[in-house]
């Protein structure tokens, strides 16, 4: 069974020195505006914790996110854009709320959809300042502090954009914000 003193796989050294190819990587990843990811999500708040499967489709500013429990039930559907999102829990139970605060208001989850859509691609949210950023030996963003969140980005894998240029995207994102945690482990990315 797992040894108790194992370290998470990304505790290798990182540097705050911006790598040469970072601007180019940032530009390429920012141009990817139509994508879907699927994997598993974990949410911890001071008084609850959930895990489940997630499918997230992003088309420019519009997104649809489905989260369901590991046995398939106990899920929710979210459809919206950066301003408003509609949350469906079952056929006749839906709410429309500002995207910025929707999941905080509805489920007491800190789940910043507008920022996460950048963080999951391994880049900062361009709409707010970066407090600090660290890069792994391959020049990818390993750690980011933004909007009070501390984000670890791990397990980068190569993918091809629509124009066939290779880009590296993270397959594990762990984000913390005073007593809250959102973790995403991704089985696959599709770039359209």
């Amino acid at each position: 069974c797992t040894s108790i003193h194992e370290l998470p796989e990304d505790s290798a050294e990182t540097s705050t020195q911006t790598p040469a190819q970072w601007q180019q990587h940032l530009k390429q990843v920012s141009e990817v505006k139509h994508w879907t990811l699927s994997g598993k999500v974990g949410v911890i708040t001071p008084n609850q914790s959930q895990t489940g499967y997630i499918d997230w489709q992003q088309d420019d500013y519009d997104f649809s996110i489905n989260i369901r429990g590991t046995l398939g039930f106990g899920g929710l559907d979210l459809h919206g854009n950066q301003d408003l999102v509609t949350i469906h829990v079952d056929e006749n139970n839906q709410r429309t709320l500002p995207t910025e605060i929707a999941l905080e208001r509805y489920l007491d989850w800190e789940f910043p959809i507008n920022a996460l859509k950048y963080w999951v691609k391994g880049i900062p949210d361009p709409n707010s300042p970066v407090t600090s950023q660290h890069f792994n030996p391959s020049g990818q963003l390993a750690r980011l502090n933004q909007q009070g969140w501390d984000i670890r980005l791990v397990n980068y894998e190569k993918h091809k954009t629509k124009q066939n240029t290779p880009i590296a995207l993270p397959h594990k994102i762990i984000a913390r914000y005073n007593g809250h945690k959102v973790s995403l482990v991704l089985s696959d990315w599709t770039l359209k």
Partner: peptide, 21 residues
């Protein structure tokens, strides 16, 4: 994704190794 749910008859542990949770 691996997940282990264990009950000892009194408490239930839900462990997600990838999510470190």
């Amino acid at each position: 994704f691996p997940q282990t749910i264990v009950s000892d008859g009194e408490s239930v542990w839900v462990y997600d190794p990838d999510l470190e949770q």
